[in-house]
């Protein structure tokens, strides 16, 4: 199964199933996880994409799943937001709630917490999107690990008009 989220909406195996902003999609299709609103944009995007892939999967099949995500920008949009809070000493208010999201792998942790996934969570950064590399890294993971299923793909947030999650659920 494949899910894509862009400003155009959510596509599940190429069929549009939802439209609107991330918050609107959350309210219309999820709605039971208020922690969503504490997340940064990258985490919201990855979290929503994973919801569409995993919400109908029974918990026992998710416990040993793996979540392996890639992007180009890392957490750079949140890094810039955090940087704005530490520029001047008289305007200096660093916050742990923001700082924690200056790590790109937090999105994999948010997905793991939501779905009680105790398997591998990993985030890789590439100079540009490269599906051959993504496929190779995911395939090579199976050489040392045996997850029940893998959520894998590209999740990159630039701004409200430029974002993409393109994730696959790989099962045997």
């Amino acid at each position: 199964m494949n899910v894509t989220i862009t400003p155009e909406g959510v596509k599940l195996d190429r069929a549009i199933v939802a439209t609107g902003s991330l918050a609107e999609i959350y309210r219309a299709h999820i709605g039971d996880y208020p922690k969503f609103f504490k997340m940064d944009s990258l985490s919201k995007l990855g979290f929503l994409a994973a919801e569409f892939l995993l919400r109908d999967i029974p918990p026992e099949q998710k416990e040993n799943a793996a979540v392996v995500l890639f992007n180009r920008s890392g957490s750079l949009v949140t890094d810039r937001n955090y940087q704005r809070t530490i520029t001047l000493n008289d305007n200096y208010f660093p916050s742990p709630a923001l700082f924690v999201y200056t790590l790109a792998n937090i999105v994999t942790g948010e997905i793991a917490i939501r779905h009680k996934i105790y398997g591998e969570t990993a985030f890789y950064i590439l100079p540009e999107r490269d599906d051959a590399t993504i496929e190779r890294v995911v395939a090579d993971m199976l050489l040392t690990s045996s997850p029940t299923m893998v959520v894998a793909g590209w999740v990159d947030w630039l701004d409200e008009n430029n974002y993409i999650a393109d994730l696959k659920l790989i099962t045997n």
């Binding site: 942790g109 793991a112 917490i113 105790y118 969570t121 990993a122 690990s145």
Partner: peptide
């Protein structure tokens, strides 16, 4: 590699 599935 394993996640705690607990807290960020």
């Amino acid at each position: 590699n394993h996640n705690d599935a607990n807290h960020i």
